[in-house]
């Protein structure tokens, strides 16, 4: 554990709390892509299969349980509690276009050709692109609530902070995880446009609006 990874994980936790807080206070899931949230459930469930056979640490265990359960809870809120506030006609990105190629890539580029390892690799690739339906939805509506942008910023910063963590681990432990690193850089790259608008507009007190 190092400071970058810890801060990254805390940003990830924060993003989830911001999202749940937004839904409860506004009693709405408007502006949130159900598809992206469903992809995160798939990401966590396929990545943390090792909960059944591998013990890393109490921290690792608790975080994994939290990510799986909170992502399921978010789907429950969207599907049942606040269902009328979700507009499926805005959430039209085809997730097959993400899951299919990610699975094919996981079959080709992995560390070990067995079930759990391919699932882990698939989850890493899928996480990198899971934000697409959300970004696509914002592109369509051209705007986002401020609280939603705080959620996305925390979510983007989480993976961005893993990059200095990998650099740090390379120098201190000599460990390199090329699959996580390449996917993590792609994942962070997808947020650059968003980060630009977030830091130059939202944090200056303006509304998140995209040029028409």
């Amino acid at each position: 554990m190092n400071i970058f990874r810890l801060l990254g994980d805390l940003a990830h936790l924060a993003s989830i709390f911001i999202l749940v807080h937004k839904m409860h206070t506004t009693r709405s899931c408007r502006g949130i892509s159900f598809k992206t949230q469903a992809l995160y459930v798939v990401v966590f469930v396929t990545r943390y299969i090792d909960l059944f056979y591998s013990w890393i640490s109490l921290y690792n265990f608790v975080m994994k349980i939290f990510f799986i359960s909170s992502s399921c809870y978010i789907l429950y809120l969207m599907k049942y509690r606040f269902r009328p506030t979700h507009d499926p006609t805005l959430d039209t990105f085809k997730v097959e276009y993400l899951a299919g190629p990610c699975f094919a890539l996981a079959l080709i580029f992995n560390y070990h050709f067995d079930f759990t390892e391919i699932m882990w690799t698939f989850s890493i690739y899928l996480e990198a692109v899971a934000i697409f339906p959300q970004l696509f939805m914002m592109q369509r509506t051209g705007e986002a609530e401020t609280i939603t942008t705080h959620y996305l910023a925390a979510l983007g910063i989480y993976r961005a902070l893993y990059i200095p963590n990998w650099i740090y681990r390379y120098y201190t432990e000599g460990t390199v995880d090329p699959i996580a690193i390449v996917a993590g850089i792609v994942q962070t790259g997808l947020y650059l446009d968003f980060f630009y608008v977030y830091f130059t507009k939202v944090l200056q007190g303006q509304k998140f609006e995209l040029p028409a």
């Binding site: 990874r5 990830h12 056979y53 890393i56 690792n60 560390y111 759990t116 882990w120 963590n165 996580a180």
Partner: peptide, 10 residues
């Protein structure tokens, strides 16, 4: 290289 790869990150 045998067995499972250990992934200690989240």
């Amino acid at each position: 290289e045998q067995g499972n790869v250990v992934h200690d990150e989240l």
